[in-house]
Design a protein around this nucleic acid. Structure first.
Length: 475
RNA sequence: CGAGGCAUAGCGCAGCUUGGUAGCGCACUUCGUUCGGGACGAAGGGGUCGAGAGUUCGAAUCUCUCUGCCUCGACCA
């Protein structure tokens, strides 16, 4: 298989270039005239919509309600929580003029909306009867990033941010873990991406949070990609924003808070986790087109008629199907939809019609099979399922092969150079994290939930260590 | 913010060294032949050469300034 015209860079030649080629040539996005602000094209946005649909269902099962907060935050409000401000101030985009008038209280384009939610919560929460509040919003946020890459890091990105308030610490802690579980399931069931789950170290946690949890995906170039986070805030923000409720004991209390989010970075994970030298490979559940029908010799009327019958059959079965009867040659169409990662291709030509069959081809491994017309819906559904599992298994295998136990600094370096996670015992001292960063440009990705100590001292300082931590180079 | 690179048609580029009024491939439009792995022929349409200033009879080309973007490094979903 060779791309004659619009060839994309091969992964092994230049992985970063391959990535941008795929983003553009699969028509997921385009660059705009402002650095870091990308255009989500219909095909890319449709993937996001599938993610939204799935998550909205899961959220609503948990009692979460969708809301919408303003785009701008007065800096006087933003400044109320000290740690939070320090974390975000360097990357805020700030509006200083309204029309021709200079604004006294400058308006920050939201980099995240904790402060807006808190201000609102302070007005609507009076009693324990007003709790819990489980709010979510779909929106975009702006962070003035110095280096940007489509989907992975942008000055603006789309996300959902959930913000909750609970009566008790226990409920809030449970919420942060429950939402992490939902994200992990999203990876497994929808995106076919296995994540490593765990807690962030103090150094890596979110500004203002007491505890941060994350899901981390491992990319084929050996770098980790933080794909979603959940936070337990305690009642720090609540105190700073004066959120109080009268408890069951008739005493004023501060509620306990969480927030959680995933972003369009997930699209970047999908591209890298599954893509190959022919372009995108989309997991079936989020593929905007699950099956593309390519008629062969479509000028013969019986071919197009039959192709339309296949279209109706699949469409009625709830499968996202496209019939491409454009004027291009079949070969061109094969390449086009491979580039776009469509999981299953259905070919139908005169020979097939004579035999009452069609040809199904899988995007992920190129395998072709002939199917009777009567069986096509069942067979397509089966293939979509098979493809999902094959993608997941392949990623999972890669992940497990790239988690390396290390006992010394030399082993740590080897593991990082190989790519993937170095599984290390850590003393808990931030100085050791800093040292690893300085020496090998790797960060603590997380303290995994599965804690099975395999040594008793920290490879950096030699002191007693009881925590298992994953280090990796990251996006 | 440091380091590099690029800016000429929608995209990818040539032209610049040695100044003379813009070209190639792809894409696009029309017609015809094609169609089981990126088809072919014919005829077309499309560009104040990133912006500004300067040198010159004349600037895509030489000089200066500015701007934007991409890639790589320090921070973030």
């Amino acid at each position: 298989m060779e791309n004659k015209n619009e060839s994309i860079t091969r992964q092994e030649d230049d992985f970063a270039q391959w990535y941008t080629d795929v983003c553009k040539k699969a028509e997921l996005m385009d660059y705009s005239s402002v650095k870091g602000f990308i255009i989500y094209r219909p095909y890319g946005y449709a993937i996001w919509e599938e993610i939204q649909n799935y998550l909205n269902k899961q959220f609503k099962k948990e009692g979460v309600e969708n809301v919408y907060m303003p785009l701008v935050i007065p800096s006087s409000l933003f400044d109320k929580e000290k740690e939070h401000v320090e974390g975000f101030a360097p990357e805020c985009l700030v509006a200083t003029k309204g029309g021709k008038y200079t604004l006294e209280d400058e308006l920050i384009i939201r980099p995240t909306s904790e402060t807006l939610f808190c201000e609102h919560f302070s007005k609507i929460i009076k009693s324990y009867r007003d709790l819990p509040k489980q709010y979510n919003q779909w929106c975009s946020v702006v962070r003035w990033e110095k280096t940007t890459r489509p989907f992975l890091r942008g000055s603006e990105f789309l996300w959902q941010e959930g913000h909750t308030m609970y009566e008790t610490e226990e409920e809030a802690r449970k919420d942060a873990l429950k939402m992490l579980e939902i994200y992990d399931t999203l990876g497994r069931d929808l995106l076919a991406i296995p994540f490593v789950k765990g807690q962030k170290t103090d150094k890596e946690k979110f500004s203002g949070a007491q505890e941060t949890y994350s899901i981390e995906a491992l990319m084929p170039d050996g770098k980790a990609l933080q794909s979603g986070t959940t936070h337990y805030f305690g009642n720090g923000f609540a105190k700073a924003f004066g959120i109080q409720f009268l408890g069951r004991n008739n005493k004023l209390e501060n509620p306990h808070q969480t927030s959680w989010g995933v972003s369009t970075r997930l699209i970047g994970s999908i591209i890298m986790a599954h893509g190959d030298d022919n372009g995108l490979v989309l997991p079936p559940k989020i593929a905007p087109i699950q099956v593309v029908i390519i008629p062969i010799q479509q000028k013969r009327s019986e071919v197009l008629v039959k192709a339309k019958q296949y279209f109706d059959l699949l469409n009625k079965a709830g499968i996202r199907v496209k019939l491409d009867d454009s004027d291009h040659t079949p070969g061109w169409k094969y390449s086009e939809y491979e580039m776009k990662g469509v999981p299953v291709r259905l070919e139908v030509g005169p020979r097939d019609i004579e035999n009452g069959v069609c040809v199904l081809a899988k995007r992920n491994d190129g395998q072709k099979l002939v199917t009777k017309e009567a069986d096509v819906v069942d067979e397509v559904n089966r293939l979509l399922d098979v493809i999902h599992h094959e993608l997941y298994e392949k990623s999972a295998k890669y992940l497990y092969e790239h988690i390396t136990e290390v006992h010394t600094l030399d082993e740590l370096k080897l593991a990082l150079d190989k790519g993937g996670y170095a599984k290390m015992m850590w003393c808990g001292d931030q100085a050791c994290e800093d040292k690893i960063k300085e020496l090998y440009q790797a960060t603590a990705r997380c303290i995994p939930f599965d804690q099975l100590p395999f040594d008793d001292k920290c490879p950096v300082c030699g002191k007693k260590a009881s925590k298992v931590v994953f280090f990796a180079r990251a996006y």
